[in-house]
């Protein structure tokens, strides 16, 4: 119990520090939102618009950094993330809530698939060394070494342009409106295939390699030999004795990777024009959109912290050594 309280206190301090840094970093970057908007339009927006934009964003009133900071906290406690500059006057909460589900669904599902598939293949290839499965290793490692955007572009070039099997861009067909009906869901799944498959392909090698190596180590342990000597079935020894112990590092790796789901995968969203939070953050940084940047950072920070906490707890449960007092 004391261990858990200690951890919670530690996370509270970390959260405070992270939120404060979220507040400071955007303000330390050069440039301001109006300037960024002007250079986005490259002359198509007249310089006479500057005065009106400053008035609009409320940048014409000077406020000290400290009072901005206290305002930021009081708004945060009310759950108010402010109005986005890029999409003025849309609230940041709305921008995030329209893009977050896409990221969660796509990256969440693909993370799960690559974890399960990779660990599964790792178990077999670690247990049956020298089989054809070993040939899979260099192939998957090779694919994961390919820069993701290139893999994505090749996938588009082949499956969306040369053979027009899958759509090249978007999260759903342009004629549809997001709704809980079959045309939309089928379209969303169909549009998710290419990005999904490429993510799995590029992420799976890590899981396979990690699992296989642990399997190799564990399978030479005495208790595995004992299990085999008892005459247990091959399957039972493989899963219940070897894999069960070997999977520990992968589980904690998985818990950590959950935290990064929320951060999204900018490259996926860029290459496939997929609606998600990574691209939103990218745009916010380019546009000096402090409120949106802070909002997205906050979500990412909190989810990484939550995932870490989860990993800590899981370890405390699985491995008694970590919760023992030194």
């Amino acid at each position: 119990m004391k261990y858990i309280l200690q951890r919670l206190a530690f996370y509270a301090v970390t959260a405070w520090a992270a939120i404060t840094i979220n507040f400071l970093i955007p303000r330390l970057m050069p440039g301001d939102p109006v300037e960024a908007l002007m250079s986005r339009y490259q002359g198509q927006l007249d310089t006479t618009a500057i005065a009106s934009l400053k008035a609009l964003f409320g940048l014409d009133e000077h406020q000290s950094l400290w009072s901005q900071y206290t305002d930021y906290w009081s708004h945060l406690i009310d759950g108010d993330l402010g109005l986005s500059f890029t999409f003025f006057p849309t609230p940041v909460g709305e921008v995030i809530s329209q893009s977050l589900p896409w990221t969660l669904a796509l990256v969440g599902i693909t993370t799960l698939i690559s974890f399960l598939l990779g660990t599964g293949i790792g178990v077999y290839s670690g247990w049956r060394r020298g089989s054809w499965l070993d040939g899979l290793l260099p192939v998957t490692t090779f694919i994961s070494a390919i820069p993701y955007f290139w893999l994505g572009l090749i996938a588009i070039a082949l499956f969306a342009v040369k053979w027009q099997i899958f759509p090249a861009a978007g999260g759903y067909d342009n004629s549809l409106v997001p709704a809980f009906d079959w045309p939309f869901i089928s379209s969303a799944l169909y549009h998710g295939v290419l990005p999904g498959v490429t993510i799995v392909l590029s992420a799976i090698a890590g899981w396979i390699l990690g699992m296989r190596n642990m399997m190799v180590t564990v399978s030479s342990e005495d208790y595995v030999m004992v299990a085999q000597a008892k005459g247990l079935s091959e399957r039972r020894v493989m899963f219940s004795y070897a894999a069960r112990n070997a999977v520990l590092p992968n589980i904690s790796g998985f818990a950590l990777s959950l935290g990064f789901i929320v951060g999204g995968t900018l490259l996926v969203e860029m290459v496939f024009s997929y609606p998600g939070i990574g691209y939103q953050l990218f745009q916010a940084v380019g546009a000096k959109d402090y409120p949106l940047m802070q909002g997205v950072f906050l979500i990412i920070t909190l989810s990484v912290l939550a995932a870490n906490l989860l990993a800590d707890m899981a370890y405390a449960l699985l491995d008694p050594r970590t919760r023992k007092e030194a």
Binding site: S175, V177, F180
Partner: peptide, 25 residues
């Protein structure tokens, strides 16, 4: 997890049947 994730997308999108007559493409 899969069905939950699908539901999240759909819920965020609002539950109306708006696509009955939509032409694809």
């Amino acid at each position: 997890a899969l069905s939950a994730a699908t539901a999240v997308v759909a819920l965020a999108a609002g539950c109306s049947s708006a696509n009955s007559g939509a032409n694809k493409g």
